[in-house]
Design a protein around this nucleic acid. Sequence first.
DNA 1: TATGAATGAGTCTTCATTCAT
DNA 2: TATGAATGAAGACTCATTCAT
Lengths: 213, 213, 213, 213
Amino acid sequence: MKSTENSETRDKIIQVAKKEFIEQGYMKASLRQICKKAGVTTGALYFFFKDKDDLFCTVVQAPLQALYSTMMDHYTIEKEIDEKEILETLSKDIISSEDKKTMDKIIHIMYENRELILLILTGAQGSSLENVIDKFINASENQYKLMCEKMKKLYPDAKVSPHISHWFAHDQINALVYTITHIDSEKEAMEFNNNMVAYLMGGWHSVWKTEVE
Amino acid sequence: MKSTENSETRDKIIQVAKKEFIEQGYMKASLRQICKKAGVTTGALYFFFKDKDDLFCTVVQAPLQALYSTMMDHYTIEKEIDEKEILETLSKDIISSEDKKTMDKIIHIMYENRELILLILTGAQGSSLENVIDKFINASENQYKLMCEKMKKLYPDAKVSPHISHWFAHDQINALVYTITHIDSEKEAMEFNNNMVAYLMGGWHSVWKTEVE
Amino acid sequence: MKSTENSETRDKIIQVAKKEFIEQGYMKASLRQICKKAGVTTGALYFFFKDKDDLFCTVVQAPLQALYSTMMDHYTIEKEIDEKEILETLSKDIISSEDKKTMDKIIHIMYENRELILLILTGAQGSSLENVIDKFINASENQYKLMCEKMKKLYPDAKVSPHISHWFAHDQINALVYTITHIDSEKEAMEFNNNMVAYLMGGWHSVWKTEVE
Amino acid sequence: MKSTENSETRDKIIQVAKKEFIEQGYMKASLRQICKKAGVTTGALYFFFKDKDDLFCTVVQAPLQALYSTMMDHYTIEKEIDEKEILETLSKDIISSEDKKTMDKIIHIMYENRELILLILTGAQGSSLENVIDKFINASENQYKLMCEKMKKLYPDAKVSPHISHWFAHDQINALVYTITHIDSEKEAMEFNNNMVAYLMGGWHSVWKTEVE
DNA sequence: TATGAATGAGTCTTCATTCAT
DNA sequence: TATGAATGAAGACTCATTCAT
């Protein structure tokens, strides 16, 4: 219907660019090569895309968006949960069954677009997306900041670094990154995720029991 | 005294290259720029260094070597520890006081060369060192493989992924990377490390108590 | 009409490249110089030609092709000549009037493109065409192999090296090379060619009369 | 005894340079490589040799000299032979038994230094020796010029190009070049040489019987 | 919508050579 | 005799990007 959004040429470019970016990474990938392999001229490419970075962003946009909204939906719901309830369950499960569901969903999305996710994770250097993960981490961190406040009340003597909320967000994302990087089948990944949930929760609780040296 | 190792020109090149690599990363850094800023001709650079990669390796070699030998020394000592002792302490401390000392030492080395370490960690793409961390992780993993064997005897019903030893090694290194990336002062890093040790150990033990879903 | 084949820039590059290659030979010729003298940027050159070798091949292609097809046409016709006839005339004329015509035609083509032919002959070292002459020689040799078989029947006692067919092909081409290298006018070359035909035939027959030492 | 002529370093350089020049040809060979492989500094090389060309000449000088003096000795002797005798034998043997001996000797020298000879013949482009063969040809031509004079008296009606003496010298050398290029064993080369002598003589005589077209 | 010619600064790397020591 | 540091121009080639058509 619209103009610049639908076009065989555009699709062809994206398709070839995806392959190239995945194989070479952002910096090493060459627009020339992409054009040549797509059977398209440079001019055509520049009609549809502002520059190399724009093309890259377009290529990885879909899964990135899916991931981001999944995460945001989750946190929006989360926030509405009664605070009291949180406090009650906190000592047991920092990762709720709701969390677990979201993680599974995220894993699913990631495995549906595994190559692109890996591209974002390891091949985005030089592009404007080279630090996207940070956005996810930061979004995630807000949750843990709140929880940290509660925990501090439960364990007033714990000597815990102020970085811990960020670390926890970071390591949760990291677990996902690890999974998709090292485990090939989604099924196995899901199983591994059970270990991860246990691991992350165990780690979390232990931190609050750190004794002063 | 020696020849190709000491030279004002060589030093100047290394010094400028270090700055450039840190600022731009391996790929974006330009030998031309380095030469120009060092007030040296290309020929001079190529007299001292085989190519761009060689220059990069030379720049980061010292801290890398320090890190590697620290780690190796540690594992060599570790291996000589009586196996029985390991089994006894296993249920309590997977990270021994010896481990803790090594981690502190590693953190110290890292902070002494923080910029270079960050360079290796985030700016080596394209060079022959783009995957060095993997070597550290693999070296570390061997330890955890052994421990996993023991744990499986203690918790025969635990449903644990075969990837777990690698993950654990990975996350330990990751904790170090996180530290140096996010925490500016070494002092604070050392404190944070206490949390990390608790975190890692808590995570480790929890994994073995994962119940079948 | 067509695109990449016609272009003022392209023509200019080829024209200048031809001059440079002729003056310097393939290896010594510099693309930088060619671009500069053609008033063209490097990028432009590389838009039209894959690399230095591609440019070189383009420059010399026309006369090479003309030569090759002339030769091939000749041999195709030749093969259809009745074998008996060959045997009959063999003792007299190894170089038929048909051969002579072809040689004249070849000489004509060569003189039309004398500089380029000399370039191929003496300045192609380093390019993919550095051994093209061998292809001509080999194509030519096949003819003489057949004739050698016949001659052996006529002169069963002749002690002749198995290399002789190749040598004969080689020396025939060599005669052409000599001509174009040393004789400036085509007219004179044609006259000289009469001597060459006599020379080659005389040599050929004498070989078969070589007595055992 | 003398200084710059005898030296282990110098010998080593020559030895390595010989290998490199043979493998790469004059232009592609790199002095850097030669120095590195010889375990010698550039300075050392430039102490013994003026430049790349000087080194090349030194490397190939011995066999070149041997060839040249053999040829010159031959021609000096030849000239002293009684002119009458020449005239008598001319109609039969343009290549005398003395010639044959010289050719054999030359072939022998060539095979003793085959690699270097091939280097001179095919790898000297760019050096000051790229046209040495011409010197041999020119030296040889003088002989044939004389003979041509005689032949013209014997065959006053022959229509022979003035280039013929040069061609004959050229082709004689060419026969030698062909031999060393295509035939591996000296023994076989000697046998082939019998065919060559017959060939060259047959060619020579036939030329004088060329009839006007 | 697309073409395709053209830009021109940029890439890493190699070269023969020089010269103070 | 040799060292080895340094030159600096030159090598082929690639890049993302532009723009008239």
